[in-house]
Amino acid sequence: MPIDADCAFCRIVAGEDGQAREVYRDESVVAFFPDEPATLGHTMVVPAGHYPMVFDLPDEVLTHLAVVTKRLAVAIQQAVHPTGLNLIQSNGSSATQSVPHLHVHVVPRWDEDDLGDIWPPSSPVSEVATDAAWDSIRAACSREMP
């Protein structure tokens, strides 16, 4: 698996961060609390290999990451009893990715928690732009997915 010696998450995967609060580990993924959790029980899941973004992730790694993320969500539900949960996976700085190692945030949510709404109250996208994107994405799907 590829690693990056300068990556904070690779150091956690390698067991070099004694402050990391790990909740799960196997040969392919590691789950741990972030340094500054958004809510009680907020956990991040990372692949053991260094893959900066979802575009770089092999399908088999993505599959295992998804299964572990779902099981972790169930464990969090049982442990801290949230009334909701966000799964957040960001790619690139414009999407608020601050560590260039793919990671999934599993964020327990409660009514009236400090996070508030994560979506804008209305869409700034026009129907014309939506139709153009729809055509482009369908064309790209036909090339990428047989």
Rank of each mutant, 00 (worst) to 15 (best):
T96M: 09
V104T: 14
A129H: 09
V106R: 04
L40W: 00
V106L: 15
A129F: 07
F32L: 09
V30R: 02
H50T: 08
T63V: 10
S90H: 08
M53D: 12
V30A: 07
P52G: 06
Y24C: 02
V106Q: 02
M53F: 10
P108L: 05
F33N: 03
F9W: 04
V80T: 07
E16P: 00
A5G: 09
V128Q: 14
Q77F: 03
K70R: 15
Y24K: 00
S123T: 12
A38M: 14
V61F: 08
T43V: 10
S90K: 11
D135I: 13
S28I: 01
L65S: 04
P82K: 03
T130F: 14
D113P: 04
E27H: 09
R25I: 01
E16V: 00
P58C: 07
H64P: 01
L40R: 12
T43M: 03
F9G: 01
D117H: 12
R25C: 02
L102T: 09
Q89V: 10
W134Q: 12
G84S: 11
L72A: 13
C7W: 05
M44D: 00
L65N: 05
P120Y: 02
Y24D: 01
F32H: 01
L62V: 01
A20T: 05
F9I: 06
G15I: 07
W134A: 13
R11Q: 15
L85F: 15
Q97W: 13
